[in-house]
């Protein structure tokens, strides 16, 4: 398969250059990130940091003034293009090659803009089915990993059974990704839907796409009420903005006391920790200038195909 060939060639390339390869990640959602919570809409960044152009111009003395600065809001549209900021495993050659492969795949199918909380329909090539094609509709509860291994988890409750499927965005076995409802949620992942009533995760399998003509991606401020314990994860330990306050009624006083001990009010002042966990703006701009034109071309091509 093309996917495996490209991965193999990438691996051979890297071994030839003597580079390390990235390892798979486990799931860890301890990052509270309580400071900046709003996800930027498509049109404007909420944080007010990119608004004042005057300051940004002064900052980038190294970049030539004539070069067009890319719109940094694009980083929400293509989050898997940005490598993880873990410096020890980073490799600029590997990242460039990966981005090249990713753009090549985006040329074949349209990987649309969506966020955690959007409802997608995915058509897969399924060797197990007699007609070799299967389809799944679900809400995106998670977006993990960067680069070619960027994956999403879709959840739906079908016949009163919660079903989740993990998919890799750049997998050639994905035939089509269609966004049925484009919206954002208050949290970076929605795994707590596993411990919520099924109403929050049920979507009809023949759902029609919600056409939203506004420029901004709507933010769904819904607060989910969880089921009584036991839960699959300790939802009370992290301040999820998408979980209703009634969670306090579901936990014991001892758990509440333990939760107080877990609070780290100093963490938001830890400037170096946030620096190590983010890509600097200059780097984001470099990557965006690299991919911007290709990706716009692909979007145009796929939207033309649709219409």
């Amino acid at each position: 398969m093309a996917f495996y060939v490209s991965r193999l060639s990438l691996g051979l390339e890297l071994r030839r250059l003597g580079c390390k390869t990235m390892r798979c990640s486990g799931v860890d959602c301890r990052s509270s990130s309580s400071t900046s919570t709003t996800l930027a809409p498509r049109s404007l960044a909420d944080d007010g940091k990119t608004d004042k152009l005057g300051r940004r111009e002064k900052k980038n003395l190294m970049m030539s003034e004539s070069v067009d600065k890319p719109d940094l809001n694009l980083r929400f549209k293509y989050p898997e293009m940005f490598p993880e900021p873990f410096m020890i495993w980073r490799n600029p050659v590997k990242e460039k090659l990966e981005r090249k492969d990713m753009l090549a795949r985006r040329n074949c199918i349209s990987i649309p803009e969506f966020y955690v909380g959007s409802v997608l329909r995915v058509n897969l090539s399924n060797i197990h089915q007699p007609d070799k094609v299967s389809s799944f509709v679900g809400i995106c509860i998670e977006r993990k990993e960067t680069g070619l291994r960027a994956s999403i988890t879709l959840r739906n409750v079908i016949d009163n059974l919660g079903v989740e499927i993990k998919l890799e965005l750049y997998d050639p076995r994905l035939l089509k990704i269609e966004v049925l409802r484009l919206e954002r949620r208050l949290d970076p992942h929605l795994r707590y839907l596993r411990d919520a009533p099924p109403e929050y995760s049920t979507f009809p399998l023949d759902m029609k796409p919600d056409i939203n003509r506004s420029d901004e991606v709507p933010l769904n401020r819904i607060k989910v009420k969880l089921n009584p314990r036991p839960w699959t994860e300790n939802w009370h330990k992290i301040e999820y903005k998408g979980i209703d306050e009634s969670i306090d009624d579901l936990i014991t006083n001892k758990w509440k006391a333990r939760r107080e001990l877990l609070r780290k009010p100093w963490e938001k002042y830890d400037l170096m920790k946030t620096y190590r966990a983010t890509l600097p703006e200059e780097e984001m701009e470099e990557i965006l200038t690299e991919i911007k034109d290709d990706v716009e071309e692909h979007d145009r091509k796929h939207s033309r195909r649709q219409s």
Binding site: F86, P280, E281, E283
Partner: peptide
Amino acid sequence: LRPLIHYAELSKLVSRL
């Protein structure tokens, strides 16, 4: 400890040191 990139981190903009 390897920090995992999440949306919240992407929304933060920092200048390069």
